[in-house]
Simulated assay, not measured.
Amino acid sequence: MAEYNQWMNARLYAAARTLPDAELAADRKAFFGSLFGTLNHLAAGDTIWLQRFAQHPAHFAALDAVRALAPPAGLSQMLFPDFDALAQYRQWLDGVIIAWAGTLTEADLDHVLRYQNTRGDPFGRNFFSLLMHFFNHQTHHRGQATTLLSQAGVAIGDTDLLALIPNVAP
């Protein structure tokens, strides 16, 4: 899923890069307004979740750089003022996710992670289930982003995870 995330984000950002800034920022009535707002939400959400995951007792060294970041104040906080800075952060973040995912063990997955949401409400949830939510959340909002791109006249092509699953001869 980390590889799919990286692959799709690279394709999404390449497609978005073809639009002028005004089109990226145009309010298209999506959950987070614009395409830029949607991409920003994904980066903010991923940062928040990775910082929560960094609290796991395994103390994942691959998350040290994310652990050191100031936490976003919320899921709509604009992390960067322009597309290029957001794209650079996204690329870096995807590298962190790939490196971190490669360190996870079966034992890490069977843990109750205690965290607070952005309002301060406490939760304790199964780490594996949270990891599934993390990747599903990305897929959900990338689907919205591809729709926004389509509305702006930009085709992104195949977005299915199936495209990355090797075909083994029957």
Rank of each mutant, 00 (worst) to 15 (best):
Q77A: 09
T147L: 12
D121K: 14
N126V: 10
A107N: 09
N117A: 09
P72V: 03
D108F: 03
D82F: 04
Q144S: 03
D94E: 02
R114S: 14
A61P: 13
S76P: 09
H133I: 08
Q88T: 13
D82M: 11
A58D: 05
F80H: 14
A65Y: 03
G95P: 15
T146V: 15
T105C: 05
V96G: 06
D82K: 12
A68I: 10
Q144I: 09
D82T: 14
G143Q: 10
A70G: 06
D108K: 03
L79S: 04
A65V: 09
D84N: 12
L93I: 00
W100C: 04
H111S: 04
G124I: 06
H111Q: 14
G124H: 09
L131C: 11
F80P: 09
A58I: 12
Y89D: 06
A99R: 13
V112P: 08
D110C: 08
R125L: 14
D121F: 09
G120R: 02
F135R: 02
R90W: 05
R90L: 06
V96D: 01
A58M: 10
L75I: 15
P71G: 00
W92C: 00
A101I: 05
Q88M: 12
Q144T: 07
L93Y: 01
V96C: 02
F135M: 04
M132W: 13
W100D: 02
D94N: 08
H137K: 01
E106D: 15
A87I: 11
V112E: 04
S76R: 15
H111K: 07
W92F: 06
A68E: 13
A62R: 01
F128Q: 12
D110G: 11
P71A: 03
A65W: 03
R114V: 14
L113E: 07
F60Q: 08
F83W: 07
Q144N: 05
A73W: 02
L69C: 07
A73D: 11
L109C: 15
F123E: 02
A62P: 11
Q88W: 05
F134C: 00
Q91A: 10
T105I: 02
Q138R: 10
D82V: 11
L63A: 00
T118M: 07
A99Y: 05
F134E: 04
